[in-house]
């Protein structure tokens, strides 16, 4: 398998995520797009991890394992983020009856 294909896929996912974050105003969609970007990174990390394992297994039985470790960290952090973020969105909905992020600019005042 060529590593490039994973990279292209990850870039594609990441860009979709960015565009989603930039273009949409619905907080839940933005949230999902952020998750999408995180997962694009996860995908890349796993792919590179496999690549390094294949290249370095002769010398080191655990080569590339740290990439997969990072993935777990990211998943944990993402989960924590979801719980906090969703809570914020719920509170926001309660206050404004909307999940449009542009309403948040009233925080400025």
């Amino acid at each position: 398998m060529l590593i490039e294909r994973y990279i292209y896929l990850a870039i594609a996912l990441f860009c979709i995520g960015i565009v989603g974050v930039l273009a949409r105003r619905n907080a839940i969609i933005i949230f999902m797009c952020i998750e999408l970007m995180l997962n694009a990174v996860n995908l890349l990390l796993v792919a590179f991890s496999k690549m390094h394992y294949a290249a370095g297994v002769a010398k080191n039985a655990t080569a590339g394992i740290d990439g997969q470790l990072f993935v777990f960290f990211i998943m944990v952090v993402a989960a924590a983020e979801v719980s906090v973020g969703l809570a914020i969105i719920v509170m926001m909905y309660r206050n404004t009856h909307s999940v449009d992020v542009n309403f948040l600019n009233r925080l400025k005042h």
Partner: peptide, 14 residues
Amino acid sequence: LQSGLVGNYVLLMV
């Protein structure tokens, strides 16, 4: 720059 619009911040970040 501090418009308060999340979109702007994100755009700036990107």
